[in-house]
């Protein structure tokens, strides 16, 4: 089961005080669906405004990025740059 950290402030309106979840998800798409199922509204929030760090690698917005069974997944704000 992947460990999904939802402690970022951008998740708070949806997850309240929940910090971490154990989720059975194998792609970013599955992660978004599962988050939306548990916390309605969080799915689009993650999809539109957040990035997902999977084992330290930041992926901004690709459904198909794999998530391993023991992956650490962190939700953070999307990054841009100059």
């Amino acid at each position: 089961m992947a460990t999904v950290n939802v402690s970022n402030q951008m998740c708070r309106p949806y997850v309240g005080d929940t910090q971490e979840l154990e989720l059975e998800v194998d792609t970013v798409r599955a992660l978004i669906n599962e988050l939306e199922r548990r916390f309605p509204g969080l799915g689009p929030q993650v999809e539109e405004s957040m990035a997902v760090a999977i084992d330290g690698v930041i992926v901004q917005d690709t459904y198909l990025e794999p998530i391993g069974p023991d992956s650490e997944v962190f939700l953070i704000p999307k990054i841009a740059g100059g």
Partner: peptide
């Protein structure tokens, strides 16, 4: 493997 201050583990 450091856990970055902004969340994820660095690689």
């Amino acid at each position: 493997e450091t856990k970055a201050a902004y969340g994820p583990t660095l690689k």
